[in-house]
Simulated scan of single mutants.
Amino acid sequence: VIGGLEISGRFGAGLDGVINEAGDGLAFIDLGYRQDASLSTEVLDVEELRAYGNIYSTIPGRSAFSSRLRLPFYVLPGDLLILGPLLFFIDQEALVSVGVSSVNGGLIPWQRGIETSFGRFQFVLGREVAVYLYGRTKTPDALVTYSTKENGIEDLFVISYCSTQLEFPILEYRPFRSFDADQRSSLFIQIYGAADFPHDVKVLESVTGTTIPPVLETVWSLGLRLVFDWRHYL
């Protein structure tokens, strides 16, 4: 289990719920910063090593610069980036029709919002993607890991590395929304899937003295985000 805290600023168009309660015309891009706590599992389950802090966690605490993009789509994620400019010059009536359909859940409206007495649910897979760039600060991310060589000998490493995480929200639940003339606030929960791709691995220390880094595998995960969203309308 990993906990984290993220803060970001975004710019976009907040048109969700304007055409109807089921519609979602929310489109934005944001930039932010994220700080993660350490993973709760450890590389070596040895009581004496816990005094050395979180470097022995499978994934120690780390920070990342983040960016997030959200955009409705007609048939395939991101298709409005191509259809929009084309239809603007070819057929503007078709552009309006495609835009309205996209806001209302797409050509196959499986992403329409579902309003209930206790909140709003919506499948958002493909509408939003986030990128997290770990290890880009002045202090590189580091961890302790081990690898078994072909001859069966195990080696213990201290390595530095960078990683890029892609996050794809799947389901969104908004228990409440509050409106005013020029601002809005809401609290919502997202269930998401993510893939973390490590790269630029360097050996800082090793028991055998080797400088050949071990192979770090892609980490796949499911997560839950609790988000407070405040907007000011221009």
Rank of each mutant, 00 (worst) to 15 (best):
S63F: 02
F123D: 05
L80V: 04
Q190N: 03
W110D: 14
A194P: 08
V227R: 05
Y56D: 06
S117L: 12
V46Q: 15
A22G: 07
I82S: 03
V1R: 07
L216H: 12
E21Q: 11
L76M: 04
L107C: 15
A27R: 13
D180Q: 14
S57R: 11
L80H: 01
V219D: 02
T148P: 03
F11W: 00
I153H: 12
S67D: 00
L5Y: 10
W110N: 15
G17W: 03
T148K: 08
S147C: 05
R174N: 08
Y134E: 11
C162L: 13
Y56S: 00
A27G: 10
L87Y: 01
I189G: 13
E217I: 06
G61H: 01
F121Q: 10
V98A: 04
G209H: 04
I55E: 00
V1L: 08
T139M: 15
Y233M: 15
G23F: 00
G78H: 00
T211R: 08
I29V: 09
G223P: 00
V207G: 09
P169D: 09
L26F: 11
S102M: 13
S186R: 10
N20T: 07
L171C: 04
Q35N: 06
S102F: 11
Y192L: 04
A27M: 13
T208C: 13
L71T: 01
I189L: 15
E150L: 12
L71P: 02
P169W: 03
S206F: 10
G113P: 07
R120S: 04
G9V: 09
V158F: 01
E115D: 14
R184A: 13
R68D: 01
D180K: 12
F121Y: 11
N20L: 12
L87S: 03
V227H: 07
L166N: 07
T210D: 13
G53V: 02
F188D: 08
P175W: 11
D16V: 05
R177K: 15
L26W: 00
V46G: 15
I90W: 02
I212E: 08
R10F: 09
T148F: 08
I108E: 08
N104A: 12
L166E: 12
D200S: 06
S147R: 03
E167P: 11
L69E: 04
G119Y: 07
L187W: 03
S117R: 11
A94R: 01
E6L: 06
G32Y: 06
E154N: 03
V144Q: 07
R70C: 02
L234V: 05
S101Y: 05
L39A: 04
R184S: 10
F228W: 03
E48Q: 14
S101F: 05
S101D: 05
K149Q: 07
D91S: 07
T41H: 13
D36P: 02
F123Y: 02
V75I: 15
T148N: 09
S97M: 10
D141E: 13
A13C: 05
L156Q: 03
A13Q: 00
V98P: 02
L87T: 00
R50F: 11
P213W: 06
V215H: 07
F89S: 00
D141L: 15
E154H: 06
T116L: 13
L44W: 15
Y56C: 01
V144S: 05
S221D: 06
S40L: 12
E42K: 00
A37S: 15
S163T: 09
Y192D: 02
G152E: 11
R184M: 14
T41Q: 09
I82M: 06
S66F: 01
